[in-house]
Amino acid sequence: MSNADPVRAALGDHIVREILLRDAPLGSDEDLFDAGFDSMSLSRVLVFVEERFGVVIPDGDVVIDEVATLDGLTTFVRRYLEDG
């Protein structure tokens, strides 16, 4: 997946800066939960998506394995953006 993808860039930036509170960018297949994600972090990402892109993704729709990497999360979020 391209680094120029705006959805991926926005998600990656938010996760690194706001949730993981670190400088190093995420590797495309780095496991978010290994990097420090918990269930609250995921909820916060969904809140961010709602505020930034205006689509509501219910917490219940999330399948953990699908969203465990930045690439997986971006694909997951894109589905809602394209439907909306």
Binding site: R17, E18, L21, R22, G36, D38, M40, R44
Partner: peptide, 19 residues
């Protein structure tokens, strides 16, 4: 904001770090 939350994240459990 980020620098202060990092400071807290190094000292407190995650649920105690303000969003």
């Amino acid at each position: 904001d980020v620098a202060l939350r990092r400071w807290l994240a190094e000292r407190l459990p995650p649920y105690m770090v303000p969003r």
